[in-house]
Amino acid sequence: MVAGGQFRPMKILIAVTEVAEVEDDFEIEGLGVAEQYLDYDLNEWDDYAIEEGVQLQEAGEDVEVVSVTIGPERSEETIRMGLAKGVDRAIRVWDDALEEREELGVETKADVLAAVVEDEAPDLVLTGVQSNDDAFGATGVALAEEIGFEWAAVVNTLDLDPGGSVASVHRELEGGVEELTDVELPAVLTIQTGINEPRYASLRGIRQAQSKEIAPKSLGDLGLDESVTESPITLTQLYEPETESDATVFEGSPDEEADQLADLLRETGVVEG
């Protein structure tokens, strides 16, 4: 929201991640799902974070939007999606030491992102509420604490004057209640789905994204070493929960299935006809 007056340059850093989606039928190999059952996509929540950042850029005069991803080379595909939607440039952090971990802990991600924040000095950091694969929901807030920024989690409305020093947000609580909160900048906001309508990348955007910078960085480039990958948490087992289903499944052709369901619905007495 632009309220007129003086504009101050602003930098927005958006932490985005690719996520693994598992096919309906899959197999577990060791501590993970076997690679052939995985598809990779941009994290659903991050798509909304990107849109929010790009909208602020469009509303302001001098707003730079940079994305940062911790991920292997494969993730450049999803990083480009953000660049095609209007993100100016991207940073991708990866390292053999990160590759070796089965799962990156919250503190590892927070430490790595903190080093990027130190380099970039953004006014605002946006992340998704959670990633749809790990669903930890903790990186944004841990990062904020690490770098001494203020924060708000699960934001579904953001009002920010690009010259201003306070973001007015709604936090989406349980049961259809929203909390209205003022947050001092610099801040980290974790963005909830539904906050905006993520755009589709235009052909022009996709073309332009090809020439935008994705700067690769190792831990060493960020002044970090392998010790940031250490975690007191160890993944010991991944298993598919026994299905507890005792549902009666109607079988046959769609017509036969519908027929049986119709009988059931009539029996309950709540549906007539």
């Binding site: 802990g105 503190e107 903790a138 604490e145 690490e146 924060w151 349980e174 974790t190 948490i233």
Partner: peptide, 23 residues
């Protein structure tokens, strides 16, 4: 593990250098 829990537990864990498991 509520919306408000997610708004402070990660910060507490980070501040106290404690491992965190959500959900």
């Amino acid at each position: 593990n509520s919306v408000n829990g997610l708004d402070y537990a990660p910060a507490v864990a980070n501040r106290l250098s404690l491992p965190l498991v959500t959900d």
